Simulated assay, not measured.
Amino acid sequence: MVTSPEFLSAATLRAALLADREQALTRLYRQAFPLVRRHVCGHGGTAEDAQDVFHDALVILYEQAVGGQLTLIASASTYLLGIGRNLWRHEQRRRARLPQDALPDDPSALEAEAAPETDETRFAVLDYVEQLGARCKNILLAFYYFQQPLTQIAADHDYRSVRSATVQKFKCLERLRNSVRRAFRSETIDY
């Protein structure tokens, strides 16, 4: 079997991709995929991982070649191997950050463990915020919900300094915490 010649220049590769994309990509696949597969499988990956990495590398090469941004100093298959190595390294780092044993096999199990907050608890907190009064409610909502800077809150509420607005926000937050604590204690103590 005679192997097809290697793409040695970016211009040749670009011309081949524009003339007959399918044939050019097939040639690249035959030339470079075994190299990428050998690298990925030799570094802890599977054949499926190698295919994913190679396809991503091929897309990058294709976009650069057709866009005229590709500069080859080696063959196209060597370039694809380099891209594949980098992509596989990134994938390994990403996988290392995710604890595999912590994730259940069934995605619906994540939803069951999450214990979403109910409308009841959400409205209970809003009730406590309402009990604080308009000024505290506005300050806390502006800071925590609308994420406004304290300089803006100080100006909107006519405080002389940012420090005064910070102190008032802290006092309002403490009032909210205390009212929630009192309510929680009464619920847990009452039989």
Rank of each mutant, 00 (worst) to 15 (best):
V167A: 03
A124K: 11
F146I: 00
A16G: 02
Y145E: 14
Q23Y: 12
K171G: 02
R95I: 04
L70P: 12
P149D: 14
V180W: 12
R14H: 09
H157D: 07
L176R: 04
H39V: 00
E187S: 13
G44T: 06
D56Q: 05
Q168V: 10
Q152E: 15
L17N: 02
L87E: 08
A65K: 06
A114T: 14
L18D: 08
E117H: 14
G44C: 10
P104Q: 13
S164L: 05
R37P: 12
A112V: 15
V129M: 11
A15Q: 15
D190Y: 11
Y144G: 00
S179V: 09
K169N: 07
F7K: 12
Q64H: 06
D127P: 05
E111Q: 15
T188C: 09
V40A: 01
N178Y: 12
Q31I: 02
T121K: 14
N86A: 10
D127C: 06
Q152N: 01
L132Y: 03
R135E: 13
G42S: 10
N86I: 05
E6Q: 15
P149W: 05
R160V: 02
P149C: 02
H43W: 03
A109M: 13
G42Q: 06
H55K: 00
E117N: 10
E91I: 03
E63P: 00
I189Q: 12
R93M: 07
L17Q: 03
F54P: 04
L126V: 06
P104K: 10
A134M: 05
E120H: 12
C172I: 02
E113T: 13
E174W: 07
Q152C: 05
V66D: 03
L25R: 11
P34D: 08
P104C: 12
R94V: 03
K171Q: 13
Y79T: 01
H39P: 08
A16Y: 09
R14G: 11
A154T: 01
T166L: 03
E22C: 09
I73H: 14
L87W: 06
C172Q: 02
D106W: 14
